[in-house]
Design a binder for these strands. Structure first.
Lengths: 328, 328
DNA sequence: ACACACATTGCAAACGATGCCAACATGGCC
DNA sequence: GGCCATGTTGGCATCGTTTGCAATGTGTGT
């Protein structure tokens, strides 16, 4: 079908090995290389990925695994990662696990076989399991810390602290936290952030949410109202928007009667009504940085084996219209 | 590293070719096959994709191209396609074009080289260009019709008709349509739908939007108010939600003062305030059906060359809270 | 008992690119 | 003028799998 390296070699009057070297950066006479490059261009030569992979053992692709492709939070991470991967001319496999641990395990195994490295976003498996699976090849984790693996995470404690300070300044003294899914690493971190933000004179009361979704938020809203809290911080924006929706239905005015703070700053946060005050995390940057770390790891494969340090990206509170002074 | 076909052959006391046939469904003695299968399992044998691809010329993967990975509308199509692909055990490459024609061209070319078939969602290129690019291999188009290519589309005319009937029944006689991006095939179809829905006594006035985004909707809202229309149909939900947002800011009540209808029924449509009446299209089903058509094409490659017929999926109007009776 | 069909298996040649090694030419140096 | 270092190049084996073809063995019909 398309031109092979042999075709180019013949057309340029050299051997296939020379073409390989010329195109691959080996030692070749400048004039020869120029000719070969020109001829290759004319013939529209594209190296056959499979043949190259077979001999080098590298696939030239990376894999990205997220819990849910439909979740806008992950979409932005994907965008970041795929633009970085494109810059490195690496195709990227994207797959989702439907938030399921078994599917995650399976997906990691299958991606492993077809890629040189993996980006695991918000993985659900246990530390041990992930460490074992990650041993199969270069891996970078996003939104999670796994001992021994490089990670890209956001500074949850700082984000939470900013939110509490903001609420404190508005006079709130009793704040509800709507949790994330059970066992979620991110949720754990945010609870720690809440616990460590003492000295503000704010009391925290927890309200459970089973899933990080709009519907869980709707459910949680009624629970929040029974706690006597004057403000609520939600595990993520989707939950916060669910809370907002239910509050509106019940005639509770936001922020007049209750202040609401989300987390992540997905696009929807500035589209809902009222516009959501939220703790923004640099999603796209996390994706691109994770991809970047992975690519660098691949480049120096076998060279210095110093671990990539984990990266902590800043969270920033974005104040919009869903938070306000507490009314007496 | 991992076991090769030769390892299995040696362990089973047969030749590699026999192993290949046993695992690949060729004519092999039942007892022999049983042994080979068992041994392969024990050794954890996984055929090397690259080697197979090299000889068969098939990559065993498919590609999916969308204009924007962050757009929730496309997310759902991706989910549908990838779940179908997973059922066929085919990994799927996902890439986006940033709504850019040049990038689209480039992405198609590069995906072509690494996949057996392509799913093009809402491609922006011209018919001629797409037909040319599609000639490179099996292709299924979603949300667009390109002469000579199998396609999966939704019944825009019916959706629009349902919306107009609904609005007509509520007493509206002057309806604004906020358009999609210039040159968009979907937009064209929706305009045709509007034009052909005569006999309802409804006058249509067009309001331009440059991009299918929230911000365009915000912009369009003010324009809509100058037209004297009592209802507005937006090219998609994102625009409709932008309209909603701007109307709220200007104190225009929905649906009391103005009715708003979206298109697509993305998840956000039932999360915004008021909940959006919208023309739902079966996004996930479109994705899975498109993937299914592509897989079937790949299976009978070279066999009967009858073209896959295009598929038209029904649109249904979902009435929520953003539409109501026209007030005198 | 012989020929022939058929089932089962092994052999060897690919597929396209890479990279080791040897071959060759050239120029500088003693 | 001969030797060696250096720069360039071609030859060839190789990666793991599939597949056409030939070889072997078994059973059947006459």
């Amino acid at each position: 079908m398309s031109a092979t390296i042999t075709d180019v070699a013949r057309a340029a009057g050299v051997s296939p090995s020379t073409v390989s070297r010329a195109l691959g950066g080996g030692p070749v006479n400048d004039a020869t290389r120029a000719t070969i490059v020109r001829v290759a261009e004319e013939l529209g030569y594209r190296p056959n990925r499979a043949a190259r992979e077979l001999i080098t053992g590298r696939t030239g692709t990376i894999g990205l695994l997220v819990p849910d492709l439909g979740n806008p939070y992950f979409s932005e991470i994907i965008k970041g990662a795929s633009s970085r991967a494109r810059a490195g001319a690496l195709p990227i496999f994207v797959s989702d696990t439907d938030e399921d641990v078994a599917r995650e395990r399976e997906a990691i195994a299958s991606l492993r076989a077809t890629t040189d490295g993996l980006l695991l976003v918000s993985p659900r498996g246990s530390d041990e399991e992930l460490a074992a699976l990650a041993a199969g090849g270069p891996t970078v984790v996003v939104n999670r810390e796994v001992p021994g693996l490089p990670a890209v995470i956001s500074d949850a404690a700082s984000g939470i602290a900013q939110a509490l300070q903001h609420l404190g300044a508005l006079g709130h003294t009793r704040v509800a936290y709507v949790t994330g899914p059970h066992g979620s690493w991110s949720d754990h971190r945010r609870r720690e952030g809440l616990a460590s933000a003492t000295g503000l004179g704010i009391e925290i009361v927890h309200v459970p949410a089973a899933t990080p979704t709009f519907h869980s938020g709707v459910l949680a809203a009624d629970l929040v109202l029974t706690t006597g809290a004057t403000a609520v911080i939600a595990f993520n924006d989707l939950i916060a928007i669910g809370v907002l929706d239910r509050l509106a239905a019940r005639g509770v005015r936001v922020p007049h009667d209750l202040s609401v703070v989300g987390h992540d700053d997905i696009a929807m946060a500035s589209m809902c009504s009222p516009h959501l005050t939220t703790i923004a995390v640099p999603k796209e940057r996390m994706g691109s940085m994770a991809a970047d770390m992975l690519l660098r790891t691949l480049d120096r494969r076998g060279a210095s084996d110093d671990r990539d340090p984990s990266v902590l990206l800043p969270s920033t509170l974005i104040v919009r219209d869903s938070t306000g002074e507490v009314k007496a």
